[in-house]
Amino acid sequence: MDHIDQLEAEAIYILRETAAQFKKPVLLFSGGKDSTVLIYLSIKAFYPAKSIFPVMHVDTGHNFIEALEFRDQLVERFGLKLIVRKVSDTIINKGLVEPQGKFPSRNALQSHTLLDAIQEFGFDACIGGGRRDEEKARAKERIFSIRENGGGWQPYSQRPELWDLYNGRINEGQNIRVFPISNWSELDVWNYIRREKIELPSLYFSHNRKCIRYNNRLIAVSNYMIAEDTDDIIDTHVRYRTVGDMTCTAAVASTAITIDEVINEIANSPISERGETRMDDNISDAGMEDRKLKGYF
């Protein structure tokens, strides 16, 4: 078995453990490459039976249209059950404050919507595409990671996790986040996408887009941001390395239109995935840790 086979085997094993140990598991889908890979893995894990996991999208309302179209096609193609819960509804119901600024990101508000949905459906396990190499707080996550009542992560008292004996036993009010592709790198994900012929939103490949040059980053022009006359707008070849909110994900200049070209580009990129594309981790040294403490993915 080569390293991709080993990573796939580990992920499939974890998905089957999740199916066996929980009553109401759900797969969290963002429209990005990592959660798309998760969906393909969950199809393979249970073939020829269907995947038993419904798919939930926490919709910030700031999505790329390409990601939404892709989501609907994917769900249709595999006959998956799709649940959508909208951050805009949570903002109204809970009287939350819309984020401010030039690029108002609802990224942090997603946690409220997610926690509400977990309660509404009684989900006991949420499967996510988080990877340990993405970010330093993620590097500390267990494969089965407990969330307490308020959804918070308790990084200093995590359960021991021995061998592949994932402990999914929980008490009232707790739920578990499951991370089957914890040990995959960005390149592993892309090599798997190539090997399994996985389709992705067109955003991941080079296309023409109007972007604003802002703090050395390229941010797509959209209705969700505040336009100003002084904006430095260019129309250029870009692709996305990660796909999140239109307001918190930066594009990268790229002419890569095939998977091989993308893999080549990433392998030679001097900059990390989040470093190049995320605008929300830079806010503080512990940006991700703080969001996770409050129930973030």
């Binding site: 340990r132 190499d133 590097a139 500390k140 990084p155 995590q158 914890s182 790198s185 390149l187």
Partner: peptide, 8 residues
């Protein structure tokens, strides 16, 4: 606590 790092 344990942290995981990767290299190739």
């Amino acid at each position: 606590d344990v942290a995981y790092k990767y290299f190739t």
